Computed example of a mutant assay.
Amino acid sequence: MMKRILVVEDNDLNRKLFCDVLAANGFSVEPVADGETALPRARDFVPNLVIMDIQLPNVSGLDLISEMKRDTALRNTPVLAVTAYAGKGDEERIREAGAEGYLAKPVSIGPFMTAVRGLLEGRGQEAAA
């Protein structure tokens, strides 16, 4: 069965790039541009993985991750945070919110796909630049 990935990213180019790369690698992809619709879409789509931008308008990706981890239907879904936040302590805060993976933007396709596959196979991953 095809693995489902929810991509929460407000930047049109990044969202399209992530979705295109994932679809080309055989995944079913659901793009979400607005953090406010991310959780309802996740509940409907039932993803195997969520790729979450942290800097979103209206709602923080950190808050969304925390909400997901409190939701009985979504709490076991791994989250890969992809963010421009790459300062001291940012990765720690993102992981404390519940993200199993972390990548700093700009993201290279190789490390991105390695992180995606690792999380889908149940393995966490180390930060990659």
Rank of each mutant, 00 (worst) to 15 (best):
R117C: 12
G26V: 10
R75F: 09
A115Q: 10
G98S: 07
D20A: 12
R75S: 13
N11D: 14
R117S: 12
M113R: 04
M68Y: 03
M2H: 05
L6F: 01
M1T: 11
A129I: 13
M1K: 04
F27H: 04
L64G: 01
D71M: 10
A127W: 03
P78M: 10
S66M: 13
A42L: 08
A84D: 06
L17Y: 12
V46C: 10
R70Q: 15
N76Q: 14
R70H: 13
K3F: 00
Y102Q: 07
K88S: 15
A128D: 15
F18Q: 08
G89V: 09
L17V: 15
D44E: 15
L119V: 11
L80Y: 00
D12C: 06
M1I: 08
L120W: 07
R117E: 15
L62S: 05
D63S: 13
R93Y: 04
R123V: 15
R117F: 06
G122F: 08
D63I: 09
N11E: 14
T72R: 12
A86N: 15
P111A: 12
L62P: 01
T37V: 13
T37G: 06
A127I: 12
V29M: 01
S108C: 11
A128H: 10
A129G: 13
G118F: 02
E100M: 06
E67V: 13
G101E: 07
N58C: 02
E96L: 04
I51G: 02
V116Q: 03
A84E: 10
D53T: 07
R15P: 01
D90I: 01
N11Q: 10
T83V: 08
P78E: 12
S60Q: 11
L80T: 02
A115W: 03
S108H: 12
K3C: 03
V32I: 08
P31V: 04
N76C: 11
V116E: 06
N58W: 07
M68S: 10
A24K: 06
